[in-house]
Design a protein around this nucleic acid. Structure first.
Lengths: 181, 181
DNA sequence: CTAGACATGTAACGCGTTACATGATTAT
DNA sequence: ATAATCATGTAACGCGTTACATGTCTAG
């Protein structure tokens, strides 16, 4: 799996909750807020087969029910290890600018596939990166805003505002973890 | 250009501000908040050549300066038309869930390549879609939050929170357009 | 008896990533 | 000299999209 195939990691994360078929996974992407991922068969089935080739999952055909055969996937020990390594890797400055989706995906499985300490560490690192990036954005807007058309300035402001919202969220989330410790 | 090549539209939008070379465009992606796009030559140059093949831009080699030759691109009438059609197309519900980046890119050039009326119409449509999607998310969180681990619940909350922030932004932006009218 | 849900797959195509290649000019 | 910046390109590779293909079971 390429390091940037978010879909692969999303599948691996979901399979750690429980064994599922490709169709189960498609339904999750079609009907829940995980819907940022594609639910198309042309994405899911090849991705599952790739995971299987790499021994991150193994599959088993169930003929049991009266329905058409289902192929159910579950992660291997090596798949769980790879997922955890991806999930707990340090946060780079670049991640905050170009891979926010990936960061949130990593975080969303934190309690299930890592532990609360990893979640706290993640949030601290995220807060640190945001604290350094937000002023850069603010500075850019201040320096260039005047000469930009309204829509451009507003779009930039939207980006800044959403980073500020994320910052607030991360601090709140960290507090919740600390209260629960 | 495929309808989902954001990079192509970003280039076309920037070239409407002024003629630029591939290198100029790379620097923009490398040094400004447009940095969500790749500044790698393997992305930019092929994308420019594709735009040229489709007659959305035309290029001209400048030997003028003492530097190495620069190939400068500028949009054609047909390129401007295509950009505008993409930019002013109606907002679909799906756009808000899976293509927020595209929406913001469309908006950011609105004053330059369309007009304030289009910007207002865009913001109204965005507000409408957010007003219908946010309750769905909230409902999902309410129904499933209890049985989710803390990190999962928080990640979902982050998504919800950022949609709420965007909603607030869109209303504020619309007000600014109305005040200026 | 037929529409819709269940269920899994493949093939063509286009795009971005990574890595490599080339060469000119400017600053140290 | 040589490192850094300017400047443009190509090739291999992997992934997602779209469209197509196939077949079963259940509900009306």
């Amino acid at each position: 799996m390429q390091k940037d195939s978010l879909l692969g990691y999303a599948l691996l994360g979901l399979l750690q909750q429980q064994p599922r078929s490709g169709y189960d996974l498609r339904k999750i992407f079609a009907n829940t807020p995980m819907g940022t991922f594609s639910d198309s068969p042309g994405a899911i089935y090849p991705a599952l087969h790739r995971l299987e080739r790499q021994k991150y999952v193994r599959s088993q055909v169930l003929e049991s029910s009266s329905l058409r055969r289902r192929r159910v996937f579950r992660p291997t020990a090596s798949g769980r290890r790879a997922f955890r390594a991806w999930q707990t890797q340090p946060i780079a400055s670049d991640d905050v600018i170009r891979r926010l989706d990936e960061l949130m995906l990593r975080f969303s499985f934190m309690d299930e596939t890592a532990n609360p300490a990893a979640a706290r560490q993640f949030l601290k690192a995220l807060i640190r990166e945001l604290r350094s990036y937000i002023p850069v954005l603010r500075q850019f807007l201040k320096a260039n805003g005047r000469q930009m058309p309204l829509s451009g300035r507003l779009a930039l402001g939207s980006g800044l505002h959403s980073y500020e919202a994320l910052f607030w969220w991360a601090e709140t989330a960290l507090r919740k973890y600390k209260n629960r410790k």
